[in-house]
Simulated assay, not measured.
Amino acid sequence: MSASSSGPTTSLPFWRTKPLNLMSPSEWESLCDGCGKCCLHKLEDEDTGKIHYTNVACQMLNLGTCGCKDYPNRQKHIPDCVQLDASKVEALKWLPSTCAYRLVAENKPLPWWHPLITGDRNSVHEAGASVRGRAIAESRAGPLDRHIVTWPA
Score class of each variant (00 low, 15 high):
1 M>F: 14
2 S>E: 15
3 A>D: 07
7 G>Y: 08
7 G>W: 07
11 S>K: 14
12 L>G: 04
16 R>A: 08
17 T>G: 02
20 L>Q: 10
21 N>W: 10
21 N>H: 14
22 L>S: 12
25 P>R: 05
26 S>K: 12
26 S>D: 11
32 C>Q: 07
34 G>R: 05
34 G>L: 07
36 G>V: 04
36 G>K: 04
41 H>Y: 14
44 E>P: 01
44 E>M: 15
45 D>P: 05
45 D>I: 08
46 E>D: 11
47 D>Q: 15
48 T>I: 02
49 G>C: 14
51 I>A: 11
54 T>E: 06
54 T>D: 03
56 V>P: 00
60 M>V: 00
60 M>I: 02
61 L>M: 07
64 G>Y: 06
67 G>L: 09
70 D>V: 11
70 D>Q: 05
71 Y>G: 10
73 N>Y: 12
74 R>Y: 02
75 Q>D: 04
76 K>T: 12
77 H>R: 14
77 H>C: 01
79 P>W: 02
80 D>T: 14
82 V>P: 01
82 V>H: 02
86 A>Q: 01
86 A>M: 08
87 S>M: 05
88 K>V: 11
90 E>T: 13
91 A>S: 14
91 A>I: 09
93 K>N: 15
95 L>Y: 05
96 P>V: 04
98 T>V: 04
100 A>W: 05
100 A>I: 04
101 Y>N: 03
102 R>P: 02
103 L>I: 10
103 L>C: 11
104 V>L: 09
104 V>F: 09
104 V>H: 07
105 A>L: 03
106 E>A: 15
108 K>C: 09
108 K>N: 11
109 P>R: 13
110 L>K: 14
113 W>S: 06
114 H>Y: 14
115 P>N: 05
116 L>Y: 13
117 I>D: 12
118 T>E: 09
118 T>A: 13
118 T>F: 14
119 G>S: 12
119 G>L: 10
121 R>D: 10
122 N>M: 12
123 S>M: 09
123 S>F: 04
123 S>R: 04
124 V>W: 04
125 H>P: 00
126 E>L: 13
127 A>G: 09
128 G>T: 13
129 A>C: 15
129 A>M: 15
129 A>Q: 15
134 R>P: 01
135 A>V: 00
136 I>K: 08
137 A>Y: 04
138 E>Q: 15
138 E>M: 02
138 E>K: 08
139 S>E: 13
141 A>D: 01
141 A>R: 03
142 G>P: 09
142 G>M: 07
143 P>K: 13
144 L>T: 02
145 D>I: 08
148 I>A: 00
148 I>R: 03
148 I>G: 00
148 I>T: 11
150 T>N: 04
152 P>K: 02
152 P>E: 06
152 P>M: 10
153 A>N: 14
153 A>P: 00
